[in-house]
Design a protein around this nucleic acid. Structure first.
Lengths: 147, 147
DNA sequence: TTGATGAGTCAGCAC
DNA sequence: GTGCTGACTCATCAA
């Protein structure tokens, strides 16, 4: 018995016909090629070859299936990390912009303050210069309330 | 043969000793209890019982293992959704605050404009009233540069 | 011994 | 037939 390759036990005791196919070869082989190779074997042996081929195929499928699953899981875990980083980034940006907003807001109120102070002093000046008569006390309000 | 429960094939042909344990019972049973129950059996039959018990246990372990895996995957997928929602929320907030900031900024520049206009007109007025002499042209700069 | 898990096998579904 | 996947079995590791 040749042992240059993994051989097929199924044919060990076949005296007339002899077919030897390695696992990797059998697994890669098309069903047509296999049929040619085992054409002259008995029905049972043919079935045995096909079954072995199916098992070898299934082995690969199972491996692939498992890998696919774990890759998918790892992918969404990675995606999680990316999303978390994005949250950190946006939250930081938010903080920065809130500070800017608060500073502008403060600046606004200071400018308003200065402006209204100027307004008051200007009115005062004009009034003193006689360009504007002092407003009568409570004119409007008393008129309305006493009416 | 009783068929009121799943029975134990292993003992079908035992003529002297007879032990019948259902799968669920065998799986739940402690190893001590099992040993008591099968005390009088042959060594081979004892081993067969223990082996069946181990297989039943393993079946449960495998089930649990598979469920654990899929639950973990689902959990991180859920986590992904939550994170995405958080991003949307923070991004929206960021947009809102940016708008506020821009409005305050604009308001600031308008107030500044008004204020500097007032400043100019006030300076002009004072100058016209003779309280402030017109500034000589290029005094400082020419003095320095011509020195 | 118990529990968990990767890998191989099989059943069964979908194409 | 082919490929995929859930469930089972087994080998093997850790506790």
């Amino acid at each position: 018995m040749e042992n240059n390759e993994v051989y097929n036990d199924l044919n060990r005791f076949s005296h007339k016909t002899w077919v030897e196919i390695s696992d990797s070869e059998l697994e890669r082989m098309s069903i047509q090629d296999l049929n040619k190779r085992i054409r002259h074997l008995s029905k049972g042996k043919k079935q045995a070859f096909r079954k072995r081929r199916r098992i070898l195929k299934n082995r690969k499928y199972a491996l692939k299936c498992r890998r696919k699953g774990s890759i998918e899981t790892m992918d969404i875990a990675k995606q999680n990390k990316v999303l978390q980083q994005e949250i950190d980034r946006v939250a930081k940006e938010l903080k920065r912009v809130m500070n800017e907003r608060d500073e502008f807001k403060l600046k606004c109120s200071r400018l308003s303050e200065i402006l209204s102070a100027k307004q008051r002093s200007s009115t005062q000046r004009i009034r003193l210069e006689g360009k504007l008569k002092p407003r009568p006390k409570n004119t409007c309000l008393t008129n309305i309330s006493e009416k």
